[in-house]
């Protein structure tokens, strides 16, 4: 019996009250947590595609220092869905003691997440016109989530995150003069402390479910935290997430003006392009160090794939973007 067969049986018994499980398929995305697609058929013979998130081995711990546990992720999703934010509806959760391990089941939202398709395919031409504004609106609503409806989340401000990423970078002991420059540049421009709000943490092209009409759902909530709302606005503008369409600041599909306009219209606080620029640089540095981290999995033998090896060579793209921000005027 394969591992998938075992999981199929475990899930079938765990989900028995909901219906019959079939077509269990491991999805490629989401390397840090297991994500599966399955079909759930109810007693009334209604079939629905669902998405299962599960901690590998059923362990409840988060997969990295910055990620939350699946349990917290599900609680945040439930609260946001309840508040009308476009995100998948959670229908079932299981704690670490359940036979399925730490897991939750949510509705599958149909659409496209592959950035290059969203940026190029004719069927998304209309979506591209409205996406940046829609992202602004949705971000304002995420940032306005009442804290009383949310689980306890770590507070991560710019200064603390910079220290954290500096420690990670230092631990690799491999010289990157441009990263040193970026740390200094960012440390000299730290934003003033703001009232903390819910920050998605990975709001970018690639984690947005998009239909021909526009944004359908925000996915991948494992990096949620309390922090500065401008962090989310900067992250979606990082050049790596523009997938070649640098002239379109927001995700390669829209303008910063549209994003900020949508954000303000939905009640978000005034955020200046200069503030976004700080967080774009911060995001580029963070992504560069994340590339080093992913390469480390290859170096240590934890993941011997050519993909893990090759991603180390993407750190340099963030260096050229950092120089364009620090020494140039580009990227906003």
């Amino acid at each position: 019996m394969t591992q998938d067969d075992t999981l199929q049986q475990t899930l079938q018994s765990a989900l028995a009250t909901l219906g019959a499980v079939s077509g269990l398929t491991r999805l490629s995305g989401g390397a840090s947590q297991e994500t599966w697609r399955l079909t759930l058929t109810t007693a009334e013979r209604q079939s629905q595609t669902m998405i299962l998130r599960r901690t590998p081995g059923g362990r409840p711990r988060p997969v990295s220092e910055t990620a939350v546990t699946l349990d917290v992720e599900a609680q945040v999703l439930k609260a946001c869905h309840q508040a009308g934010i476009p995100c998948p509806r959670v229908v079932w959760t299981a704690g670490p003691d359940s036979e399925a391990g730490s897991a939750y089941l949510m509705d599958y939202v149909p659409g496209e997440t592959i950035p290059r398709k969203i940026l190029r395919d004719p069927e998304f031409a209309e979506a591209r016109k409205v996406l940046a504004h829609q992202c602004g609106v949705v971000l304002a609503r995420i940032h306005a989530m009442p804290l009383s409806t949310l689980p306890d989340l770590n507070r991560m401000e710019a200064a603390g995150q910079l220290r954290q990423y500096r420690d990670i970078y230092d631990s690799y002991d491999y010289p990157h003069p441009v990263f040193e420059l970026a740390f200094k540049w960012l440390e000299a421009r730290l934003p003033e402390s703001t009232d903390p709000c819910l920050v998605h943490g990975d709001f970018r092209n690639g984690n947005l479910m998009v239909g021909p009409e526009g944004l359908r759902a925000v996915l991948d909530w494992e990096l949620v935290h309390m922090g500065n709302p401008a962090e989310d606005l900067g992250w979606i503008c990082v050049n790596s997430w523009r997938f070649g369409q640098s002239q379109n600041t927001v995700g390669g599909f829209g303008s910063l003006e549209s994003l900020l306009k949508g954000y303000a219209e939905a009640g978000g606080r005034a955020i200046s392009p200069e503030e976004v620029r700080f967080w774009i640089a911060f995001g580029s540095l963070k992504w560069g160090i994340m590339c080093m981290t992913m390469y480390k999995a290859f170096e240590t033998g934890a993941d011997a794939s050519v993909e893990r090896a090759a991603i180390g060579r993407r750190a340099s793209e963030t260096e050229v973007d950092l120089l364009n921000i620090i020494y140039g005027t580009a990227l906003t």
Partner: peptide
């Protein structure tokens, strides 16, 4: 140095063209 690095790692990367013309 960075332009030379990216020219090896990802010669088609958008940020490389920006750096060459702007920096």
């Amino acid at each position: 140095s960075t332009i030379a690095k990216v020219a090896i790692d990802q010669p088609a990367y958008s940020g490389l063209q920006i750096a060459r013309s702007a920096l």
